[in-house]
């Protein structure tokens, strides 16, 4: 597995797209800090971008990589290698290289502007951490979709739809249900609803870290009580872990049964 991981990783490291992605974050970081000159404010703007963009990039790269390397994968399948090894190796290689672009791309500009000496280093680390998690989650989901669809166009379509659902439509449905069931106590419900969407969960985790929780009144207090504690933090990160593990299990199952 390590060999395949290595191969995937180096293959991606050499590809133009990884560089483009890295340079994009690098520029973004510098431009943000140049315009804002305020680390705290820059992190809030960055959050908006990370929460929306890393899933999108993860999804698109995941689907693209699967379809592009399909022939090579088939070649590998002819060798005496376990199927799960091949796909997990590719998955980890891809996710790690994308996360690396993110961490380095944003880390370098913020290091330049003295993140180390500022009090918000912890917020920044949370942000990067959440970004990496989202990359892993959405690459895994994208791989699932790609494995289930032989048709490239269909696969792409479903993948984008999946991203759209998580990033936008879910929130819309959430908002509507909150407005409709206005008369009922909703804080428990909203807590559950956020936990079941990795994008929302990441957003709330970062928002609470940035102390916007005070804006949220009673609901915020409920959230702070949950996410603010060590238990809540562990619970939410393990929820993100589950969001990686379940798609991976499905990848393994699907791959072992698939007729290539």
């Amino acid at each position: 597995m390590i060999k395949i991981l290595k191969y995937s990783f180096y293959d991606l490291m050499r590809s133009r797209w990884s560089y483009a992605y890295f340079v994009f974050y690098l520029l973004l970081g510098f431009v943000l800090l140049f315009l804002n000159n305020n680390l705290d404010k820059a992190i809030i703007t960055l959050m908006n971008i990370i929460v929306i963009l890393t899933p999108l990039i993860g999804t698109v790269f995941g689907v693209m990589y699967y379809y592009n390397s399909k022939e090579f994968t088939e070649l590998l399948l002819a060798q005496p290698v376990k199927r799960s090894t091949i796909f997990l190796g590719q998955f980890i290689g891809l996710s790690v290289s994308l996360s690396l672009s993110l961490v380095l791309g944003l880390g370098i500009p913020f290091l330049f502007y003295g993140i180390m000496n500022s009090a918000i280093i912890l917020n920044f680390i949370t942000l990067i951490f959440v970004g990496a998690f989202l990359t892993f989650i959405f690459v895994a989901l994208a791989y699932n979709i790609a494995l289930s669809n032989e048709n490239k166009i269909k696969g792409f379509g479903y993948a984008i739809l999946m991203w759209l659902f998580m990033a936008v439509i879910y929130d819309g449905l959430f908002l509507i249900s909150l407005l409709v069931f206005d008369d009922y106590p909703l804080d428990q419900f909203s807590l559950f609803a956020t936990v079941f969407n990795p994008v929302d969960l990441s957003r709330i985790l970062i928002l609470l870290k940035l102390d916007i929780s005070a804006l949220m009144g009673y609901t915020g207090a409920v959230f702070k009580d949950f996410f603010g504690t060590i238990f809540g933090l562990i619970a939410s990160f393990s929820m993100l872990m589950l969001w990686i593990i379940f798609p991976l299990l499905r990848i393994v199952r699907k791959a072992s049964r698939k007729d290539f």
Binding site: I52, A167, V168, D171, D182, S190, L207, T219
Partner: peptide
């Protein structure tokens, strides 16, 4: 109207 909706703060849908 519904204070609980604040948890959607900074979500893409809200911006839209």
């Amino acid at each position: 109207r519904t204070p609980e909706t604040i948890i959607l703060l900074r979500s893409l849908f809200v911006d839209m």
